[in-house]
Design a protein around this nucleic acid. Structure first.
Lengths: 151, 151
DNA sequence: TACATATAGTTCAATGTTAAATTATATGGA
DNA sequence: TCCATATAATTTAACATTGAACTATATGTA
């Protein structure tokens, strides 16, 4: 591993961190929420308004099929409301419900508590410093079309 | 997103980078290899010798079920050889075959080429600097039992 | 020795993802 | 207006993963 080229080592560490963190976080989420589902609720709470499924899929860098699946489950639980787009017969408009807000609130509390377990172990100051570099890398991968098949 | 606590922002960026990078890398891999399969072949080329499935599962931080699946596919393609452990009736011993070495070699070349597309775009010097911090975070998550259900 | 417990590996259902095919609606030019 | 093309969303098959249940073998202790 030490002998691997830097890019491979970076992608490898990132893959493992993602595996470890998402396994735990999704395990503690309430209401059977997945991380993807929580992400959508969070998105709505912070940005407000309505979004088309296509726009959500783009925001989360997943295919529309994946977003259809996520939204169906959220709708089945009553956490989002979906209506036809009055201005585009092909489209739909999604928004969060009150139940969705409550679920997101509860989930956020639990996630914060779980992450709190790492307090004193992880040097979050150091992590804050590397965050911009991660963001830059993410943006480059995104722009470089080093990304899923655009559909 | 800017308003999220640092840990969430870190895990979020890491999740997206992982999604983008693994989607592309697995798409270009030859012989229908998955990243997990490539990882196992790579492991054997670099470390040599034989390993039990359990040890491989631990090394890659996946469940044994997942490793059973990965090894079955590798064996079906003739890329690894699996034999009973002569010293433990429950166990098996896995190693890479010549065909596996060739496949890994070819895959590595293709992956390097794909990553090469990012040359001049990504500042790998900066990435090399954050690597130790990622490694530290990964180790903490690992030790903290902030990890999948141990089985 | 015998039994309780631990460990190795497999199998299964459920979930989330991609990629491709499909249906429905928009849009822009001939 | 008509048609070619683009876009929105869904559906489906294939796949990797988890977590739990299961079988088989080891190990340690009474």
């Amino acid at each position: 591993m030490d002998s691997d080229p830097i890019p491979f080592r970076i992608f490898n560490e990132i893959g493992i961190i993602n595996q470890l963190s998402s396994a735990v976080l999704s395990r503690v989420l309430p209401h059977g929420l997945s991380l993807a589902q929580f992400g959508v609720l969070n998105h709505f709470v912070r940005l407000g308004g309505e979004r088309t499924p296509a726009r959500l899929a783009a925001a989360f860098q997943v295919t529309r099929g994946a977003m259809t699946n996520t939204l169906s489950r959220l709708e089945a639980q009553g956490f989002v409301a979906i209506r036809p787009d009055p201005e585009d017969g092909r489209g739909k408009l999604v928004t969060i419900t009150e139940a969705g807000r409550s679920a997101r609130e509860e989930a956020l509390t639990i996630l914060m508590h779980e992450v709190g377990r790492l307090e004193g172990k992880v040097d979050w100051e150091a992590m804050a410093e590397i965050l911009p570099k991660l963001t830059t890398l993410r943006q480059i991968l995104d722009e470089e079309r080093f990304k899923p098949g655009g559909q």
